[in-house]
Design a protein around this nucleic acid. Structure first.
Lengths: 196, 196
DNA sequence: TTTCGACTATTAAAGTAAATGCGTCGAATA
DNA sequence: TATTCGACGCATTTACTTTAATAGTCGAAA
C-alpha cells in the first residue's frame, strides 16, 4: 500500500528532524518517488503529518482499550493510563519538534485532530472512573467532570516541564521525574475519590 | 525617595506596554529626569524590572502572611491562597508581556528572583498544610512534599491556559474559569488530605 | 552626591536579493 | 483510467546589508 509506505517514510523523517525541517522532496526520495506523487495521496504536507500523528493516536487508543479490558482496579488502570499517556505525549513532541509557540500557531490546522483525540481520551478516562464508581471503588460522583479535571491536571504537569525543554527530546531522567510526579499527584487525587 | 519614584514610573509603563517595548528614556521623561540618571539608581534595565517585580512579590507575600494569621481552617487558607496566587501570576504576565519563549530566554537573568520567591511561597504553603496536619484537619503526612505537589499542579493549570493566550491580558471570564478550575482541583486534592 | 549632555557599543528593525520549498499542471507511462 | 513526474509558479524563508534605535557609559557640571 503506497499510503502506508509514505506514512512510514514520513514518520521516520519527522521523528528525526521534526515537522518543519523535513521536505517533501526528501520523503519522496527516501522511497524512490517524485515529490509530486506524494500529493496524489496527501493533499498537503500538513495532511501527511496528520496521517502520521493519527496512526500514533490510534495505536495509543488501542493500547488504552486493552488496558480497559483487563480485570484490574480502576486505580491500576488510571496509573497505567498515566504512564502510557506520557509516552504518547513525548512521541508527538518528538515528531513535531516545534516550539510551544509554533505548535499554537499551527493548532488551527490540527483542530479536528486534537478535538477528536481529546474527546476519545476523555471518554476513556470517564469510563474508567465511572466503572470505579459503579463497582464501589470510588465514591459516587460525576465521572465526566472528574475526568476533565484529571486530564487538565495531567496536561498541566506535562506542559510545565515540556515548556522548559530546549532541544525537544526527553531523556530518561526527565521522563521518570515527570512520570513519578504525575503518579504521585494521581495518588493524591484518588485518595479523595476512594470510597471509605 | 527617588528609587520608589522610578519604580512607580517604570511599573506604570511596563504594565501598559510590557518590558521590551518600554525604553529607559520614556521612564525618565515621565518623571522629569534624564535617562543617565536612572542608571545611578539601577545598574541595568533588567535590574529595574526586577525591582518592580520584587515589590509585587513582597506585597503578595505580605497578603498571604495576613491570610496565615487569620483564625480560619487550613482549607480556607489554601483557597484564599489559590485566588491570590492567580492574581499575582496575572500581574507578572501583564508587566512582562513577553511570549513564553522570551520568558524562558530571560530566565537566567531572573534566576535569583524566581528562586527566592518560589522558596518563600513553598514555605508559606507548607506552613498552612503543616498547621492543618497539626490541628487534626488533615491526615498526618509530609507537608513539604504535599506543598510541592500542590504548587506544581497549580502552576500547570495556569501555564496550560496562559500558553494559549495571544495578547497577554486576562479578561474576567478567563480569570474566573482558571480560578474555578483551580479551586475544584484543590478541593479534590484536599478530599484526600482531610482526616476522616 | 546627584544630574545630565554627548557619546559608544550593541541590538533591533528595515530593506534587498537570492534561495528554498510547497503545491500545481499537463504530459507521459503503465 | 490510475499513477507518475519534470518543469514550473509563487509565496515564504533565508542571508546579507544598511539604518535606526536603545542600553549603557563617562566626564563635567551643579
Amino acid at each position: 500500500m503506497k499510503e502506508k509506505e509514505i506514512i512510514l517514510a514520513a514518520r521516520k523523517r519527522f521523528a528525526y528532524y521534526g515537522f518543519s525541517k523535513v521536505t517533501m522532496d526528501e520523503i519522496a526520495a527516501d522511497i524512490g518517488m517524485a515529490k509530486a506523487s506524494l500529493y496524489y495521496y496527501f493533499p498537503t504536507k500538513v495532511d501527511l503529518f496528520i496521517a502520521v500523528v493519527t496512526e500514533e493516536q490510534d495505536q495509543f487508543i488501542e493500547k488504552i482499550n486493552r488496558i480497559l479490558q483487563a480485570k484490574t482496579s480502576a486505580t491500576d488502570k488510571l496509573q497505567q493510563y498515566v504512564s502510557e499517556r506520557l509516552g504518547h505525549f513525548e512521541t508527538f513532541i518528538n515528531l513535531a519538534k516545534l516550539s510551544f509557540q509554533a505548535i499554537q500557531e499551527l493548532k488551527p490546522l490540527f483542530a479536528d485532530l486534537h478535538k477528536n483525540f481529546s474527546e476519545r481520551e476523555h471518554e476513556l478516562l470517564a469510563g474508567i472512573i465511572r466503572d470505579g464508581m459503579n463497582n464501589g471503588e470510588f465514591k459516587p460522583g460525576e465521572p465526566e467532570k472528574t475526568a476533565t479535571l484529571i486530564l487538565h491536571v495531567l496536561h498541566g504537569l506535562r506542559i510545565r516541564r515540556y515548556a522548559f525543554i530546549k532541544d525537544f527530546h526527553f531523556d530518561d531522567t526527565l521522563h521518570q521525574q515527570i512520570r513519578d510526579e504525575m503518579l504521585q499527584v494521581l495518588d493524591m487525587l484518588l485518595d479523595g475519590l476512594r470510597a471509605d
